[in-house]
Design a binder for these strands. Structure first.
Lengths: 242, 242
DNA sequence: CGCTATCTTGAATCCCTTCAAGTCGCGTGG
DNA sequence: CCACGCGACTTGAAGGGATTCAAGATAGCG
């Protein structure tokens, strides 16, 4: 349950420098953070933390993809977070993990020792304000996700998921080519509140409808972006507008 | 669309003083907030803000109950927030409302003028840290809600909803008596991602099972708290543990 | 007292799940 | 090189839980 440690990397060349909790930090503040940080890598498929486990550090995703999931007592699983580079893991003030954290790909984390980091958050507005901003973004995303889970059909859920992937992975590339799905059919099902069979069927249907095509099982191209959006059930420009 | 204004009330006697965004404020900081605050009341049933509407103020719920909802283009509605006293409405840095806000009961809001309030948040750690804490709480609640929407059966959803009502309204009163449901059957349905007919049927079933009883349509008693919990699908002590 | 909105209950339908049987792709070892 | 095995995925058929459609019951309010 302890993972490979690495030497310090220079924050200046950090790939998530502009977007992570340290985005607004001065070089002095970075130095303070630097003293309490460690890099860890977690191989694909491994569980980085189990719900209830005591955690001695918080972390930012530097590279790779991870998921947050919750499991009901009879084994039903619901994904509640999809973590991409720059996303933060953990919660200041909380000792135990609230969610299972699983590495989907090989994962590199920039880890901050718990107690000193909590102090730093309390005394460094550039960090706490950035965390507030990121948490509000996550809350908005969670609420869109709630609409999806509560009110959308299987087809709309799949279309919404694919559109989200396009949006989050191809920032502002107009023609999205070869988008990585990252997740297995079962993980997509846990994201969308469906079974993996339904996920498979709906993906096949979108393919049959010429809205997407598959490069292989884990990569797809969008053939008709506006048809994909129409299939999501969202209005014209959805949550991007405001 | 403009609501009744009130004179200033004294923060010292404010019912949400201990729990709202100002919970940790010094008296000096309260004075600063006091300069930019106004009270508004909104009658039950009225919409306080529509998604997309430009808002000139943020606010805290002082008394009453409000909901946040999102509507899909064909009219399907999903509730994404249930606001009780001390909850905050709005998002610093955002000009437009992201959700429809509806007053369920008569609602009293403590409103903060947008621009000065944003400045205050940026320069007052006691406020921004409290907002961070409250936002993290909301995010956790949203994620539990996602599990409910994605993976629970109708019966489990209803049981979870009733248990939440008991928890949020009767803080630490052991024997919960006469809990107010606040919401109509249709609003409960929008909370749980169901139809109002299904809500009605499941409530009748829980009554038939002697787990709850109704005082009238809007108030209920829990007759068997552990049976209610068993019906939620959550494990032993659920999200309260950590 | 009667009107109306809200709620309850029943019956039929449908979408997603469950159960089951393949297919595909890839690494391993003969 | 290819047979083999295994996990991931696809597809089909049957079943079930929630929805839809419809008819009444109840309660709040003039």
């Amino acid at each position: 349950m302890s993972f490979a440690l690495h030497n310090h990397l220079n924050c200046g060349s950090c790939p998530i420098r502009e977007r992570a909790i340290c985005a607004k930090c001065s070089s002095d503040e970075l130095k303070t953070l630097d003293k309490v940080k460690t890099y860890r890598t977690i191989p694909a498929g491994q569980v980085a933390a189990y719900r209830g486990q005591e955690l001695s550090y918080f972390s930012s995703v530097v590279s790779g993809v991870a998921t947050l999931t919750k499991t009901l007592e009879d084994g039903r699983v619901q994904m509640v977070g999809l973590l991409l580079p720059s996303d933060f893991i953990g919660r200041p003030g909380r000792l135990h993990a609230e969610y299972d954290v699983t590495a989907i790909t090989d994962l590199t984390l920039c880890c901050f020792d718990r107690q000193p980091f909590e102090k730093i958050v309390e005394t460094t507005p550039t960090i706490s304000l950035r965390m507030l901003e990121m948490t509000l973004d996550e809350l908005d995303a969670a609420r869109d996700w709630m609409v999806l889970l509560g009110r959308k059909t299987a087809r709309e859920k799949i279309a919404s998921f694919l559109e989200m992937l396009v949006r989050r992975t191809t920032a502002n590339v107009a023609a999205a080519h070869k988008v990585n799905i990252w997740l297995s059919r079962e993980e997509i099902a846990n994201y969308l509140g469906l079974t993996f069979e339904t996920v498979s069927r709906q993906l096949s249907q979108l393919k049959k409808d010429r809205i997407i095509e598959f490069v292989d099982r884990r990569y797809f191209n969008v053939m008709d972006m506006s048809a994909l959006h129409d299939a999501t059930g969202d209005d014209a420009d959805g949550s991007v507008l405001y």
